[in-house]
């Protein structure tokens, strides 16, 4: 037990995290590819055509995992940010900054695929569906986080300010979600629901799960790569970075 804690703190220093992340990245890319290939195969060729929605529904295999990831990444980001504020570790802030662009990408992907799906289903690119609307606000929250961090020159201050914003955001996300849902039911009373797939077949569920795992692995791989880049950028003046093979050459 004790050993474990020490280990964790050892990897909390950028110097020991950097090579570890470097070793982990290829594995996550390999998993991304494996899950992606199987997941896409199931979603496109194995999963049955939907009786009401035709072939167009297959976009949910991208849309749903992207939506899940966009929400999940924000929580992970806020968790890192909280850790950074409590323990004052440098790596936590770097991880939060590394996750933000991927989260924003996922939110954007979710909005985009939502629009693509909406057009054939409801004949409109955008409907004020509760989930789509909260996803849009989540996208704004990501953009705000990234904009705030990039406007502050001192990286330590950027980390801390971003952390507070992320924590405020994570408290607000459920409030925003429920308020939007409440608003939606009052104003439209419509029964269309984007993610409620009609009687999901077993194979569809498998496809979606595999695609979610693929997105998951992709997010981890990209976040680790970005974290490595941030570490190099911020620690250029330290001895250990100067000793790195990739920096020397």
């Amino acid at each position: 037990m004790n050993n474990k804690i020490i280990n964790w703190f050892r990897y909390a220093s950028p110097q020991s995290f950097y090579p570890l992340a470097g070793r982990m990245v290829p594995w996550f890319w390999a998993l991304t590819a494996a899950f992606g290939v199987v997941g896409l195969y199931i979603s496109f060729f194995v999963a049955p055509t939907d009786a009401q929605q035709g072939e167009g529904y297959r976009i949910i295999f991208i849309h749903v995992p992207a939506s899940w990831m966009s929400m999940f990444i924000y929580c992970v980001m806020a968790a890192w940010a909280g850790l950074g504020l409590i323990f004052n570790t440098r790596l936590s802030g770097m991880m939060a900054s590394a996750l933000a662009p991927t989260g924003a990408l996922m939110a954007f992907l979710s909005l985009w695929t939502g629009a693509l799906w909406g057009k054939p289903m409801w004949g409109a690119w955008w409907v004020w569906d509760a989930r789509l609307t909260s996803e849009l606000i989540l996208f704004f929250l990501y953009i705000g986080f990234i904009a705030l961090q990039s406007a502050i020159d001192d990286p330590r201050r950027a980390d801390k300010a971003g952390a507070i914003l992320a924590l405020v955001g994570v408290v607000n996300i459920p409030i925003i979600y429920f308020s939007v849902k409440w608003w939606n039911t009052l104003h439209q009373g419509s029964t269309i629901n984007l993610t409620k797939a009609p009687s999901m077949a077993q194979t569809m569920l498998w496809g979606m799960l595999l695609m979610a795992l693929c997105f998951w692995m992709y997010s981890i791989a990209v976040a680790l790569m970005r974290a490595r880049a941030i570490i190099l950028e911020r620690e250029t003046h330290t001895e250990w970075v100067k000793q790195l093979v990739e920096v020397k050459s």
Binding site: I137, F140, L141, I143, G144, A147, L148, L165, V168, G169, N172, I175, I176, S179, V180
Partner: peptide
Amino acid sequence: SLLVLPLYVP
């Protein structure tokens, strides 16, 4: 405004 307006939604 970018930070605050989304939080004003509820």
